[in-house]
Design a protein around this nucleic acid. Structure first.
Lengths: 183, 183
DNA sequence: TCTTAATGTTTATTAGAGTATACATATGTC
DNA sequence: GACATATGTATACTCTAATAAACATTAAGA
């Protein structure tokens, strides 16, 4: 969320410096106050869309070039911090490893299923694709009329717009990685 | 500028209705208050980036799908209202027909040049492409080392990253259309 | 050295973004 | 018909985005 502010900060500063403009220059070109521009470049601002519009228009650039994430990141997500949700009386546990992010377009979950644990999902909104990999144990995945037994190392891709079901058919704890991709 | 608000209004409402969600549903999913969401959908709000982030993340959509302009427009720009700038003692007049817009990426000018009028431009920032069409009269366009005489109906495209010059070499008023395209 | 100009920073103020709450209006359903 | 639930609207309040102005800092010229 202040992800965005960081992107903006980075991109605006980059463009401004590439063009050898001062804050005053940009303020004049865009109609946004110098103080606000400085705040934005420091990532300490939460500008409104009209401010972003003014900056983009004044600088003759697109939104994407302003909101784009700078390329290389280096960011650790600890599975210890991952929030989790339980189903099936705690025998089916879902951990959010990488939360959804509008720039990325997908999210990653780890799922732990006790033997026999089961989870049913209604169809989600159109355009969701699920990619499940079995890290340990085995599971039967059903989606609509289709069924598939997955064992360690197997991966299944299917469209989430139909009701589907995950079931641990083994005698041990099953662990899955689930990627949800939104169109 | 409230162009943006309109886009947002349109796209948010569209997505919400496609998914059969109420304002309360969206408020719960995104963490943005119902009142604010209502304002946004009416185009009466000027949300901050963090609010847009929350909406996009909560609804699992990208920014572009929120900020995108709805397809068909129907918008008249009157040349009477066009602001204009003079150069060369008023003998070179520039009218902004379509102002720059971050979604569009280009702008359109009409230029009127009295006989003999001349205009020189420094190199603008990298990645600007100029497309000049002679509507009436004739003009010599120079860019860097290149020169070209354009007569009625002729069009020239050149890169604006070098110093360039427009000159009316005819005995009558010359009128140009100039499109500036930014990368 | 002193002055001037150009830059970014800090501060005080105001305008409005965002929230929470209460209100209005349906649409069932018993 | 009365009650409950779900939906969008309107209102009062808080917090902060945005501005304008003063300030600090540096560099350049005379």
């Amino acid at each position: 969320m202040e992800q965005m502010s960081r992107n903006l900060a980075f991109q605006l500063k980059k463009i401004r410096q590439q063009r050898h403009l001062s804050l005053d220059d940009v303020a004049k070109a865009t109609g946004v106050s110098k103080a606000q521009l400085a705040q934005i470049e420091k990532g300490e601002a939460n500008p409104t869309v009209s401010t972003i519009w003014k900056i983009a228009a004044g600088l003759r650039i697109s939104f994407s070039s302003l909101l784009q994430a700078p390329t290389a990141h280096f960011m650790k997500y600890s599975s210890k911090d991952a929030p989790h949700v339980d189903e099936d009386d705690g025998r089916y546990r879902v951990y959010s490893i990488i939360p959804y992010n509008p720039e990325r377009g997908w999210e990653l979950y780890k799922i732990e299923m006790e033997p026999g644990a089961i989870s049913r999902s209604e169809a989600h909104t159109e355009g969701v694709e699920e990619t499940v990999t079995v890290i340990q144990g085995q599971a039967v995945i059903s989606a609509g009329e289709m069924h598939e037994l997955l064992e360690e190392g197997d991966t299944l891709v299917f469209s989430g717009h139909q009701p589907h079901e995950y079931k641990n058919t083994s005698e041990k704890l099953t662990i899955l990685h689930l990627i949800l991709q939104y169109k």
